[in-house]
Each structure stands twice: as structure tokens, then as C-alpha cells.
Simulated scan of single mutants.
Amino acid sequence: MDKADDLLFDDMKFLKVGAYNFVLKENFDMMVQHFRDNQGTPYNNYHLDRAAEKTEDFKRFLADIERSMKYELKLDSKFFHNKGVLNYVNENNEKQIGHEILRPKVQGYNGLSIAVNDTWAYDVKIVGLKVSVPEKYFYAHLEITVWDHFGLDDLDIDPDEKPLYARFPGFDSWYILQHKIGKCYKPFITELRFKPMTGGKYD
């Protein structure tokens, strides 16, 4: 690897300068190293998961899942036994046919935004479920995976689209490392993993 690459990676690492959480700063360094290793394999970090789990938007996401589960159980206590498709139920308790629950954003100046910020997709599995029909109460153990893409496209470095990014040369360096012929470091998928419990009355 030439010295020019070293300087570009140093610019990338400088993007964490505004983060106030030391562990998440270390996480970003590990993400940059994973990018530098050029394997393109998925990345996961326990501390990143736990920090994302504490964000208000993840709590909103989990509340949306719980509310949607309650809605279906109220109509049919065997809904999940019959492998029904869970649709999004909004805060007014209105079912949105064909609409999935909004993906969680993972944002925060502690070091989350530079590591993940927005997300691309998610998967929710019910790995444990207890429904008490007489009490109209349920208890569920979930496994949630949320995916993000650790990479930049043309719009990410367009000053008209992302004026904030234009202020930091680390984003330009990141883009060059990913896209310039002769470099082409592979972006990768970040996996966030959660195992929350949820439940409550569904009457």
C-alpha cells in the first residue's frame, strides 16, 4: 500500500473527531480497518449494537413492532401461529396494508452517525412467544437484525446534496478509496443485532 493510501485512511479516521463516546470512536477505527482489509465481509460490533439499542428511534421501532403485534392478536390470538404477515399499525391504531414498519435510523453525536446513521433493511424473528388468551396478554422474545451499507455513492460527496459532508475532506478520501481505479476498496454491510423482549395487554 502506498503512502497516499495511508493519508486517505487517516483522513477517514478523522471523521470521528466530533464523537464523544470513546468506545464508539474505537469502533469507527475498527470499521475503517475492516474497509482497509478489503474483504467486503459483514461487520458487527457488540458496543455499536448496544449504543444503537439506546437511541430514541430504535425505541420507536420496537414500540411500532409491539403495537402492530397487539393489533393482530386482538383480532386473532392465533395470528402468529398461523404465520400471518405483520403490517404496520400507526399510532392512531390504523393498519397500513402493504406498509412495513419504518426502518430505524441510528443517529447520535456520540459516534453512531458516522458509523451507521441511516439503515437499509431489517429482519425481525419471533424466537419465543407466549399468548395468554384469558388475560389477553402476550410476551415475545425477538431477534432483530438491521443492515446498513458502509460506503459512499456520488450523492454523498455532492455539496448540493450533502453540504455538511463537503466540509470534511475525510468523505472525499473515503470516496476515492472506494471508487478510484487502482484502489477500489470494498464497502461492506454493517449488521446490527438485537434480542429485545416485548409484550403487554392486547385488549
Rank of each mutant, 00 (worst) to 15 (best):
F22P: 11
S113D: 07
V106N: 00
L75E: 15
F58S: 01
D49I: 04
L129S: 06
L129F: 02
G40T: 09
G111A: 08
G84V: 01
H99W: 15
I114K: 00
V89S: 01
I126T: 10
A121Q: 14
T55A: 03
V23C: 10
Y88N: 12
L62F: 04
N117C: 09
G84T: 03
M30F: 12
A52H: 05
F22H: 15
K136V: 07
G98I: 03
L86A: 09
K105C: 15
L24R: 04
K25F: 10
K70E: 00
V23W: 14
L24W: 09
G84P: 00
R103T: 06
E135T: 14
K95T: 04
A63Y: 04
G84A: 06
N110L: 07
F28Q: 01
N110S: 02
D64W: 03
K130A: 04
H47D: 15
A115G: 08
D123Y: 07
I114H: 00
E56F: 12
K105T: 08
P42F: 05
L73N: 09
D123N: 11
P134Y: 01
N87C: 11
E26R: 01
K54D: 15
L73S: 02
G111Q: 03
N44L: 07
I126G: 12
V127N: 13
D118Q: 10
A51V: 06
M31W: 01
R36H: 14
S77F: 15
N90G: 09
G98C: 04
E66R: 07
V127G: 05
D118E: 13
F138M: 02
N38V: 10
S68N: 04
I65Q: 00
F138G: 00
K125I: 03
D57Y: 05
I97A: 10
F79K: 05
Q33P: 11
A19N: 01
S132K: 04
T55F: 05
F80M: 03
K70G: 04
Y109C: 14
P134Q: 06
T55E: 12
N90D: 11
Y109G: 11
N82A: 12
I97E: 09
H47F: 09
A52M: 05
E26C: 04
L75A: 10
D76C: 10
N45W: 14
N21H: 02
F138E: 05
M31D: 00
V106W: 00
